[in-house]
């Protein structure tokens, strides 16, 4: 089955930054607006899954993850986002639960 893949370390940065763009480089907001939203729209349009690969970087600050994925839910609604996104992390499998929590509690 066809799917669109984003590898955050390769397609955005190995060193993710703060929550907002105003707070520093490689922010969650910047990732969401420049990388995630265009690919998300493409996936929704093509009716395919969007796979987010979290491996390869130095680590993820919680505020980066919340702003990126919680922010996506705030923008497009939980149901559609949860249906479209798939996460892969062999290096930090606990991140999947963390992100799920952020998406569920996004307000």
């Amino acid at each position: 089955m066809e799917k669109i893949i984003i590898n955050i370390a390769k397609d955005f940065s190995e060193t993710p930054g703060p929550r907002y763009q105003k707070d520093g480089e490689f922010s969650g907001e910047e990732f969401r607006e420049k990388v995630l939203v265009p690919k998300y729209n493409e996936a929704v349009e093509k009716k395919v899954k969007l796979e987010i690969n979290l491996d390869g970087g130095y680590g993820y600050p919680p505020s980066f993850l919340e702003e990126a994925f919680g922010g996506l839910v705030r923008k497009f609604g939980k149901e559609e986002v949860v249906k479209t996104l798939e996460f892969v992390s062999l290096e930090e499998p606990y991140l999947l639960e963390t992100i799920q929590k952020y998406m569920e509690k996004a307000i």
């Binding site: 060193t15 993710p16 930054g17 703060p18 929550r19 707070d23 130095y58 680590g59 993820y60 600050p61 919680p62 505020s63 980066f64 290096e91 930090e92």
Partner: peptide, 14 residues
């Protein structure tokens, strides 16, 4: 092995 360290320090800075 340092994956926990990066977010720890990043959050302190933030």
């Amino acid at each position: 092995n340092t994956k926990f360290l990066y977010p720890l320090m990043a959050e302190m800075m933030y």
